[in-house]
Structure formats: C-alpha cells, structure tokens
C-alpha cells in the first residue's frame, strides 16, 4: 500500500519527510559518534577553546602525543582509575538481576496469566502502582534498615533490591506474553499427566522463549542503566559503572582529567550499542507488545 501511495506523493512533501528524518537521525545519533570520536582526543581538543574543528582533526592531540588519536583516556580510566573493577561489578549485577528477575517473573507472570481470580487482578494493579514509584523514594526507605542490618554496600543487596524494583514491570510484561499462549496447552499437558509445575516447565517454557528474551533485555537494561539504587547502596569499592562514572566527575574535573570520564562513558555505551544492534526486533516488540516500558 505504502508503495502505491508513495508514487503519488508530491515532491515538496517528500522533501519535508526526508529532511525531517535526516534531521532526526542526526539528532539521535551524532552525540554518540561525536563522543566516541572525541574520546580518542586530548581534553584540549574535546573541549576546544579555539574551534570545534580541533575535536575532529585532533590538532592538540597531534601536538601533545604526536598522533591524531590517543588512548590515554581509556588507559587512565581502565587502568589508573580501576574502571575494570566497576565493569566487572556491572557484569555481576546485571547478569544476576536478569536471571533472578526472569526466574521469579516467569513463575509469577504465569500464575497471574492463568488465574482468573480477583486477587490476581489486584496484584497486577498493585504492581502498576509500585512500578510508578520513583526508585529514589524507595532507596530512602532502604538505607536506614540496611545500615542497621549491616548489609549496606555489598553487591548482593543491590542485586536483590534491583530484582524487586524490577518485578512489577517483569510481571506485567511476562503476564501479557503468557496470555498470548493458549490455555489449551497447559490443560492438555495436565490431562496428559503433568502437574501444574511440570506443565509450566515442559510445555509452556519451551514456547515462551521469545517473551523471556525480550523481558530479559529490559531487565538487563534496568540493571545496567540504574543510577539511583547503585549509587546509594554500594560502597565505593563495589560501585558499578554508572555510579563510578558519576564519582569520577567530582574527583577528575579538579585534576583536569575529564577524558577519563569521557572514555568511561564511551566504554559503558558500547555494550548498549551492541545490544540494540542484535536485539532491535525484540526491543521493539517488547516496547509495543509488553504494553509497559522499563
């Protein structure tokens, strides 16, 4: 249909459409490419007083290092400032959050999708309200009890908290994916001789993978992108990448090593790029079909 219509479209309208899209793509993508490119320069180029062309050609970088590109920012961040440790923590946190979220979420989402009772409805509504809670308000409720229980600052605490914060969203999304699987399937399995749990494990889960992958992506993003929880609940040596970058800013700007932060920012962005590259379809389907956003 769109082809037939496209032919009849007046030239001016076409020009507007293409112009608008080009403008949007520039707005959406250029900041990233600019920062990636600039991360291989020295600070005098990335923040150039003279002309921003310096950031493209690396005038000062050539003057200071003899080459138009330098990995000094990366060396500083990863080696001198222990960014590798933060990256390691991020891997631990995101993997654990994703796996635990999905385990709890599939069980709960399945129960919600298959129970027609009133309390299932109310649990979903409560989850909706919980999902709307700003994370930082919850964090302010955690700190004091966590200090008292002496579990503040360590990774497991943050992981469990992120899993819990993520549950409302995970439940909603998986619940709607489970609803799309016909009930006949679990019922035949149960008549064929399965318990409820066997039906869930042997029959439903094997056809649920697309939904699990999509939900998993969003759980991953939540753990990866979180700042409020990890910044407040992790001690300095256990920090993940995002709070680490934020704590970089305070200390680095004084010593003039902003480029460490730029390099760290780029390092933390690359995995997201790869994620979108490989899972674009799932992300789009999750945003639309899941009817909830992470």
């Amino acid at each position: 249909m769109s082809d037939a219509v496209a032919q009849k479209r007046p030239l001016a309208l076409n020009a507007i459409i293409y112009g608008f899209i080009v403008l949007w793509v520039i707005l959406a993508a250029v900041p990233f490419f600019w920062t990636v490119w600039g991360s291989f320069k020295v600070e005098a180029d990335f923040f150039s007083r003279e002309s921003w062309w310096n950031a493209i050609f690396g005038t000062s970088t050539t003057r200071q290092t003899g080459n138009a590109f330098t990995g000094a920012g990366y060396y500083g961040a990863w080696v001198l400032r222990d960014f590798w440790r933060a990256a390691g923590n991020t891997i631990i946190v995101t993997v654990c959050v994703t796996v635990i979220s999905l385990t709890l979420g599939t069980l709960g989402g399945y129960a919600l999708a298959r129970s027609g009772r009133n309390y299932a409805f109310w649990i979903l509504i409560a989850a909706l309200v919980f999902r709307a809670m700003p994370h930082i308000t919850l964090v302010s409720g955690y700190l004091l009890p966590f200090f008292q229980l002496n579990i503040w600052g360590v990774l497991p605490t943050s992981i469990i908290v992120l899993v819990a914060i993520n549950q409302p969203f995970t439940l909603w999304m998986l619940h709607s994916f489970f609803l799309s699987i016909p009930k006949d399937l679990d019922e035949s399995a149960m008549v064929d001789g399965c318990t409820r749990f066997q039906a869930f494990r042997l029959v439903i889960m094997p056809v649920m993978w697309p939904g699990v992958v999509t939900t998993g992506l969003f759980s991953f993003l939540l753990g990866y992108n979180d700042f409020a929880v990890t910044a407040m609940l992790l001690s300095a040596e256990n920090q993940t990448m995002v709070p680490k970058i934020s704590s970089f800013l305070g200390s680095i700007q004084e010593t003039g090593n902003v480029m460490y932060a730029v390099a760290a920012v780029v390092s933390a962005t690359v995995p997201l790029f790869i994620l979108v590259l490989f899972f674009q379809r799932q992300i789009v389907s999750g945003l639309t079909a899941g009817a909830v956003k992470g």
Partner: peptide, 27 residues
C-alpha cells in the same frame, strides 16, 4: 488455577515486592 498453586507460583515474586517495595514505603 487453585489458590494453593497460584500462591506457590507467585510467592517469591510477591515476597520480593513486599520486602523491597511495600515495606520501604512504610519505612
């Protein structure tokens, strides 16, 4: 789905939400 099965499935998730969302709000 009988109540017992339902709660067996949803309990871990429910506990997580009560402990780390509902209780903190009270706190």
């Amino acid at each position: 789905m009988p109540n017992k099965t339902f709660f067996a499935f949803i309990l871990p998730s429910l506990i997580a939400m009560v402990l780390f969302i509902a209780l903190p709000i009270v706190s």
